[in-house]
Design a protein around this nucleic acid. Structure first.
Lengths: 348, 348
DNA sequence: CCTCTTGCCGAAACCGGTTTCGGACCGGCA
DNA sequence: TGCCGGTCCGAAACCGGTTTCGGCAAGAGG
């Protein structure tokens, strides 16, 4: 029983008798023998490891998502006996450098690229290097790319439809920064929603570049202070939507009554808001699981065009939306009154 | 120039002339040559990779910490040209199985063990396997263990001291579950703080097993409904402390006025609470950075006893604490009055 | 009974490095 | 000039697997 035989038996080669395979497998089990991954890699060229480089720019924080995302990735990875190699980068250059190093040292066989930009430098780099990768999200030029993405545009459309059904006629939209590909898509979804509902698209009702909570507060205030304010607002992200609570507070409005909001992501904090945030929730863990599966198949040689998947965000109806308590005009008056009152009377 | 020479030159062996080394290094740079990590590993036995297996039990969520923690770990790892191999586990057994597999396949040379339990099965396992590991937190039997830890007990003591200085005389404590080693330590710190302040230890003022936000709400309500309620409460974790806001709301109290609270962790959400949460903040990124450094040194052969470090949490004074607006007795009356009123009058 | 497949496995090459061993070359000293 | 010691590097063994190659034995076919 030479090492060659053992290797063949353990790797399921066809030219080995069932009897010997059983014998080898049993012996390996008894001795607790598991081949060293790096020893295999030297010949196969595969380290059975998927790479993930996280961008850690300040507040960008994958934050609450990250644990679930990692759980999803490692879940499928480990069922295939793969592992996850994680690194971080604090700038675009550092990102490419880090990926490059992992490629050179062969710490990973391929990469998951989360948070794809419309024009993403990582894609060009990996294409050139000939390293397999799967996008989490679509991108501008996606020729030859494999991806997994959530149809955020459908969620945005659904949010508008739902609000229209509740009786809202002026529906605002607070979006993130346009460098992220998904933001363009979500805005398109919002616009499709308006169109489907037969509502006019009013550019005044759209705010962009609002990713952080503070941005959400500002954007919401700015929308509500319009002469014809929206009675409902759709947010591209939960984080921005959480900022709306402070804005509503400042204007003496109750969310779910005078102002309805619906957001997207499904972060845990939304549950604790008062009233709890209605949102389109994304199953991040499942996303991670699918991404890992796609990448492994890509590395094993399947065509990237065959490795493209979509999933849907699903509505979690909580308390932040409902029929408008006031019309847009009445709301404007109410806000003006409140503003005048507090600016005279001091705060709180 | 044989491959042997190249290897010696690149790895800084002494028996190589400075001239040849320069020549080799230049050539390597020109060609962009970097040795394959797994090819090196086959001879050296080191894959230059540190292992991290995350427990993903439901709400346990390393949540907001995780990004920073990973950033810290990978930061020092990458300066030493090491990488981070991450896996997840959903139970204790699965945890050991996962670690075991990574050891067998040699996907990692050693492990970081976060969230150490007082009696931690991982420690026994790795000890037996002879695999290096560094604890993030201390543990019951730490013979031969290397660790890094934050002196949470000092923070708890500091919180009590600060509150006593503000005039509080009845100070409660809401702790997490005793299975985590740090909880015992933090309680000890709280008790030391009382002693240093000359305050009596009243077991009625202590609640345990409160990790989640909801638990924090319950524990806080239960403390405030005592006949002699605390005017200030120290929380072992921010998450539990955030639950106090809802409790205060339910009883018609303003945090920072009738009830002072100080917590521990420094999660970002604390900033958004109203009033913002005073807390002892931990520099998770630095912790990760130190842990990685310690583990690498351990793997390189240094004695574990020499690899033990402490750091301090630092106070971030925000708005949730201050001089007591009411005495304990007055507070009790106020709460009783509010409770009677709302129970008669229906809710909010 | 002999040849030709076919199934199965041992032997050996190979992967890309590290490390050991030994020898070439050089300078110093007798 | 000859010997010795040290410096430096080429040659080769080695690490632990995978994969190729070839041969043995058994079964099929004539």
């Amino acid at each position: 029983m030479t090492k060659g035989t053992v290797s063949r038996a353990l790797n399921g080669y066809p030219d080995i008798s069932e009897r010997t395979r059983k014998r080898v497998v049993r012996a390996a089990e008894a001795k607790g023998y598991i081949p060293l991954a790096h020893a295999q890699a030297i010949r196969t060229g595969r380290v059975r490891s998927i790479g993930l480089v996280l961008q850690i720019s300040e507040h960008d924080a994958h934050g609450p998502f990250l644990t679930d995302f990692l759980a999803g990735l490692t879940m499928t990875a480990s069922t295939e006996n793969w592992t996850l190699a994680v690194a971080t980068a604090n700038s675009d250059d550092h990102m490419l450098e880090t990926i490059g190093r992992m490629v050179s040292e062969r710490k990973a066989d391929g990469f998951i690229l989360p948070r794809t930009l419309t024009n993403d430098p990582r894609i060009g780099f990996l294409r050139e290097e000939g390293v397999p990768f799967v996008l989490y999200g679509r991108t501008g030029d996606d020729a030859g790319c494999a991806w997994f993405d959530i149809l955020g545009e459908d969620a945005m459309q659904g949010a508008v439809t739902r609000l229209e059904g509740q009786g809202h006629r002026r529906i605002g939209f607070v979006n993130g920064g346009q460098e992220y590909n998904f933001c363009g898509l979500r805005q398109a979804g919002y616009e499709r929603g308006l169109e489907a509902a037969g509502l006019a698209l009013d550019p005044d009702l759209i705010r962009t570049n609002s990713r952080l909570r503070m941005d959400g507060t500002d954007a919401t205030l700015s929308l509500l202070r319009l002469s014809q304010p929206p009675t409902a607002i759709v947010y591209a992200t939960d984080e921005a939507a959480l900022g709306a609570y402070r804005a509503a507070d400042a204007l003496g409005l109750t969310i779910g009554q005078e102002l309805s909001i619906i957001a997207y992501d499904g972060i845990p904090e939304g549950v604790y808001a008062q009233p709890p945030l209605t949102t389109f929730s994304v199953d991040i863990r499942a996303a991670g699981a699918r991404l890992a599966a796609l990448l492994i198949r890509l590395i094993r040689g399947e065509a990237p065009e065959a490795l493209r998947e979509f999933a849907h965000a699903h509505l979690v109806a909580r308390g932040s939306d409902g029929p408008p308590a006031l019309s847009s005009t009445a709301l404007a008056k109410r806000i003006a009154a409140h503003t005048g009152q507090t600016s005279k009377g001091g705060h709180q």
